[in-house]
């Protein structure tokens, strides 16, 4: 849930943007990070662990733990607690090791 009326900081969510998670639109606000905006929309599972295939989500919000890795605008392993939302951003779960994409393979 977005906090529209903060008891101390007042209302600060002014500029809404639309982000796309798994191709579905969700409402976010400009100053929010990707992980926070998803949490506001009740999306807490951001990926799966690589060995035991267990859910992972936001943990430290400081860019340290890497638990919030997701694929954002085509880039894998983005620390979504450190990146702010942008209009039209496309976000996918970090559910498996990325395919090595041919166009990035070099010569």
């Amino acid at each position: 849930m977005h906090i529209q009326h903060h008891p101390i900081l007042g209302g600060q969510l002014h500029k809404p943007v639309t982000i796309y998670f798994n191709d579905q639109p969700y409402k976010a606000y400009e100053q929010q990070t990707v992980a926070a905006a998803l949490m506001a929309n009740d999306i807490k599972r951001l990926g799966l662990s690589r060995n035991l295939v267990q859910p992972r989500g936001l943990f430290c919000t400081r860019g340290r733990c890497c638990s919030c890795y997701m694929t954002v605008n085509g880039e894998d392993h983005v620390r979504t607690c450190m990146v702010k939302v942008e209009e039209g951003m496309k976000i996918y779960l970090n559910d498996e090791d990325p395919d090595v994409r041919r166009e990035f393979c070099g010569d």
């Binding site: 977005h2 906090i3 600060q12 905006a37 807490k44 936001l58 919000t61 400081r62 607690c81």
Partner: peptide, 22 residues
Amino acid sequence: TLPGVMTIGAAQTMINRDFVQP
């Protein structure tokens, strides 16, 4: 390791910086 388990600093960041109820 379950989502929803976070540090107290993370929870504070959610509510006071990102305006999100975690």
